[in-house]
Each structure stands twice: as C-alpha cells, then as structure tokens.
Design a binder for these strands. Sequence first.
RNA 1: GGAGAGGUGGGUGAGUGGCUGAAACCAGUCCCCUGCUAAGGGACCGUACAGUUUAUAGCUGUACCGAGGGUUCGAAUCCCUCCCUCUCCGCCA
Length: 432
Amino acid sequence: MLDPRLLRNNIDETAAKLKARGFILDVDTFKALEEKRKTLQVQTQELQNERNVRSKSIGRAKAAGEDIQPLLAEVDELGAKLSAAKGALDEVQTSLENLYQGIPNLPADGVPEGKDEDDNVEVLTWSEPKSFDFDVKDHVDIAATLDSGLDFEMAAKLTGSRFVVMNGAIAKLHRAIAQFMLDCHTQEHGYHEVYVPYLVNSDSLYGTGQLPKFGEDLFHTQPATEEGQGLSLIPTAEVPLTNIARDSIFNAKDLPIKMTAHTPCFRSEAGSYGRDTRGLIRQHQFDKVEMVQLVLPEDSMQALEELTGHAEAILQKLELPYRKVVLCTGDMGFGACKTYDLEVWLPAQNTYREISSCSNMWDFQARRMQARYRKPEMKKPDLLHTLNGSGLAVGRTLVAILENYQQADGSVKVPTALVPYMHGVELIRPKA
RNA sequence: GGAGAGGUGGGUGAGUGGCUGAAACCAGUCCCCUGCUAAGGGACCGUACAGUUUAUAGCUGUACCGAGGGUUCGAAUCCCUCCCUCUCCGCCA
C-alpha cells in the first residue's frame, strides 16, 4: 500500500509515477471520495463526541441521584444520526480502501521506464553460454534417458497437468540443489534458516500483497468467504517469511533480519495456458529457496544489491551462465519498487530464462503489515523495508543443470559444488 | 474431536455497566538529592486515525482491553459468533 499522504498531498506527481508502470489512477474519483471521507469523518467524530459528553453527564446525574429522563430524551435523536453517519462513512472508507489496495508500488528513481519485458535492461552477463559439439537436448529428453527421471505422465495420472514425479538420481539431485542453496545462504550469507507453514491465512496474503487483487493466482483450501476465512497454499515462501514481521515493532539494532526457507510453492498459473507447457519450467508446484530481509529504510537499496548478489553466488558456484536484468517500470511486480531478475542460460531454448527475481518492496508491504522498527531516539516507530528474492527456484535450477551439464553420451555431469550433496556421485548415467 | 480455564498497555497483573485509555508493580526515559559501592525523591512512559498546522511539533477530537457483530443514553465489563492459548481426555505421524 502507498502512503495515503502521497495521494492526498501529491496526487498528480504520484499519478504520473504510477502511469510510468502502466497503472492509471482515477484522480477525479479519488479526489471526490477523499472529499466525502473528510466531511463524513469529521461529522461522525463530532457526533460521537457529543454522545460521549452526554452519556457522561447522564452518568454523573444518575450518581448524584438526579432525574435522568430529560437527558435521555435529549440524546434520543443522536443515535439515529450517528449510525447514519457511520454507515455512510463506512461505505466511503471501504471504497477508498479498495482503491488503495489496488494501487501498485511506485517505481524507485532510476528504474528504466518501459512497457513490458522487452524494455528490461541488461545489467551484466556472467560467463559465456557453453558451446556443444553435439545436438543439445532439452531437460525433458535428457531426463527420459535417465531412468525416467522426470515422469510427467505419472504426475498427470496422480494429479493433472503441470505436475511432475521425479525418480532416482534426478529426485536426489533436486534435493541436493535445495540443500546446497540453503547451506550456502545460512553459512556464507548470514541468513537465519526458517521452517514455515505452507498454508497461510488471508491476513498474511493481504500483508504481502497477493490479496485482494491476485487471489486467482493461488490455490485455496476452501472458497474464500467474505470474511476471508479459509487457508491458501503459499505461492512463495515470501508470504510466510515476510509476515513474520506483521504487527511487530523491532529494535533498530536487531535489523537487518535475514531469513531463508526452502518450501514448495503453489501457483494456479491462471492466464498462462499454453505457455511453457513442456517440462519443468512452469509447474503448479515447485520448490524454491527464498530469501527475505527486513531492513532499515536507509539500507534497503544497498540490501537489494547484496541480496541479488547472494542469488548470483549460487549460480556462480554452480557455474551456470546467467545474465542480470533490471526490470522496467511496466514489468515489475505489484509491490516492488525495484527488481532484478536473474536469467539462466538454457541451451535447448537457446535463451536466458528467469530463475530468480529479487525485489525491494520499500515500505509497501510493511505498511500493509504494520511492520515497524524503533530507534532509541525516535518518538514513534517507523515502517521498515522488506526485500525478497529467490535463491533460487529449485526446479528451474534442475533444468539448467541438466541442460548445461549434458554430455554427448546422454549422461549429465554433477556440478562440482553439488558432488558432496550427491554423496560423491559425479556423473548421472543413462539407464543401460 | 470432547470437557474445562483463559486472552487487558514492553512485561507481570487489577478492573463485572458510567469520573477507566485503563490501578499497582517491574522494565525504560528524564530530572533532583546524596555521596561511596548502593540507595532516596519526583516527572514522564501505548498505537492508529482525523481536524488544525509549514510540520510525521503542539493542540483538539475519535477509535482501540484477541477479532467481528449485538444490547444500552453509555461496554474492557452483559449477550452471540469466530480465532488463539493453557489443562485433562480421545485420536494420531
């Protein structure tokens, strides 16, 4: 959520920034609602004040043994007026609330302006795409020769499309990748390992911004009622990790807080029918190691650089060629003010594909969550900043390894960094 | 799942319809006194929102005692629903 003051005091400038990311703010509607809210709120509060004053005088009169009937008669009308005012105010506030909830974060200064992913700007490339002296296969075909390592037919039988069953060495490699990432972040990058629920309530989803706008991207255990009851499967560990800070006030000296978790992620992928239907690239369920940071506002931009570096470190240790792009205003996620995507080289697709997305959410989530910090000299607590990034998507890392480490004979080399996690296995051979 | 007991400010914990936004104690901040190994006195000490304002200062008001409804002139206090915690029983990995 944006700071309401930005909209009240600087609406034109704010609307211009939102336009840069493709969001058209209905300024007239907002102004009209805001005007109405002001009037009604003042009116309601005045009525409440009157009621409170009179009620107190009734109390005093009663205690003094006086006749309270005349006073009661006086107050009679007040109730009806008050509830009418309250009702009208509620309505306006709900409309305003809905409007606020639907507004994305403002892009940070320096984020390139653009419409969609074609306008993203490459920051760097790391290593060269490998050249192969044989026809490269994609991960689906590679895995097919490795003892049915990836079994999409079985998953379709068990569940449906966009799921996978992994077997044998591939399943183990998948596990090894996640363990390796988690160890790297906890031992080398200073993250605190956390195990979190995979089902969350609607408060948490509001907190990180999935609700109210993006509910259709999630799997819900029951239809979300008006009350928002019913748990939902997490689309990313960002949700539970970040919401740890919800409704909390931290001591500034305890920040930054850096957390990491390995969880499955569940996404309905509504609206992506027909895209990436082959293989592991786009699944309803995939594993991810997530990093989340809670930081002081003045540190968040630097923290984004570091957090992105932590994700890059994984790719570098795995010796996977990648490039880093900064997302343009039009391609950023709802709550982000600046995002770096890391894209790994996939030889079979002859292109870079997203494997990590690292974002500074500024105070956008913190405001929704009321996640704050306090310095000793501060009179009032202030909103902290939240960041999150994949470090990395495990399934896509598996894809990248299979494709980049494939050999002419159909075998797949295990990246050196993963050999200990594979208990010494250096090569995954095709079935005999 | 069954039975019972609870959820109050940073912590402990009073408060069963009106002068309680909330006693007391602890922790914390500031000031004073004293002077020698530790103590005494005093003040302050929740959050959000709105109005006013150059101000996220001050002032005024409103709301908040797990959440949401209800009763009432008036609710932390009474009623209903839900959530959570604890104890016992059942079940279970």
